[in-house]
């Protein structure tokens, strides 16, 4: 039932898979960072992604700002929303049972989605792609637009920057410390709430960038656009090993490849496109529940 494919064709799919996978990875990083520190699945993360896409739409299409400003404004706006979610929905529940924060996360996610329907209307809106990013060119027999290369390049660069921040700065050191022992981190003079806010800000900014690039790839925005990518990115985070940032990127790329390649080789399965992620989730949970790069859970001495 598979089809034969030329090398050029394969490369086309390959680039497509890297692009989609790196977007999943970028969103997954936000899930994995928050989970690593608070053991909380931030269900509103996919909605921050959606807000990032909307903000860039309003900035560039409605208010006709230049792209560079529009993108920066959208990132700033979505980051602010991510900080507000933490402040309003999670911080008051810091000492509550974990399930309370989880329910709050689901609630705030529904709230953002439905508020967006009211404010933005439920109608999908077309995003204008900057012509510069869409000017097709060929390498060998592969037809490409600059956007297809820009998306993974930006995603990888941001992930690398984040790793630098986490492993080379004081704030990053505090983050790594909080993820193991909040109380001891406090004793070192770290304002834990501030570091947690920074974590939300960074995760939200990455989600916003992913949302903007997503809106450019599939040029439209709608209030529920964050749900499926959000789920998939969460699966990517689990697949890669939740808590691990390289794992989140690896998980995102794996998912991108599985999704694109299975449809490329078995076009008849394209109706099941969204199911592959969940199959991957079931498999990893059966075979290696800590994920590809997940740390073995150690007992505390």
């Amino acid at each position: 039932m598979g089809i034969k494919m030329s090398f050029d064709m394969f490369m086309q799919h390959f680039i497509n898979a890297v692009g989609l996978g790196s977007l999943y990875g970028l969103i997954a990083i936000g899930y994995t960072m928050v989970y690593g520190i608070l053991r909380l699945i931030n269900f509103a993360h996919g909605d921050i992604f959606m807000l990032g896409a909307y903000f860039v739409f309003f900035a560039t299409v409605s208010y006709k700002l230049p792209w560079a400003f529009g993108v920066l404004a959208a990132i700033a706006g979505a980051t602010l929303c991510g900080l507000l979610v933490d402040r309003i929905a999670y911080r008051p529940l810091r000492n509550a049972p974990r399930i309370s924060a989880l329910i709050s996360a689901i609630g705030v996610s529904f709230f953002i989605e439905n508020l967006s329907v009211v404010v933005f209307s439920g109608m999908p809106r077309p995003v204008v792609q900057p012509p510069l990013l869409m000017k097709a060119f060929s390498i060998g027999g592969v037809r490409l637009v600059p956007l297809a290369l820009l998306v993974p390049a930006i995603s990888f660069a941001l992930a690398a920057g984040l790793l630098w921040l986490i492993y080379r700065t004081r704030s990053g050191l505090a983050m790594r410390s909080i993820s193991h022992d909040i109380e001891t981190t406090r004793l070192m003079g770290v304002s834990v709430d501030r570091i947690i806010a920074l974590t939300f800000a960074l995760g939200s900014a990455l989600a916003a960038v992913a949302g903007i690039m997503w809106a450019l790839r599939y040029p439209r925005v709608e209030p529920f656009m964050g749900i499926i990518p959000g789920f998939k990115a969460f699966i990517a985070a689990v697949f890669g090993g939740i808590g691990s940032i390289p794992g989140a990127m690896l998980g995102g790329l794996s998912l991108g490849f599985v999704e694109i390649m299975s449809i490329a080789f078995f076009p008849k399965l394209s109706g099941y496109r969204d199911a592959f992620a969940f199959i991957l989730l079931i498999l990893i949970l059966l075979v290696k529940p800590t994920g590809l790069m997940g740390e073995k859970l150690e007992d505390k001495i």
Binding site: A174, S177, D181, E298
Partner: peptide, 14 residues
């Protein structure tokens, strides 16, 4: 309450 995944020096820096 040593942070087991951080190095000695990182513990001190913290």
């Amino acid at each position: 309450r040593i942070l087991p995944h951080l190095t000695t020096e990182e513990n001190l820096t913290l």
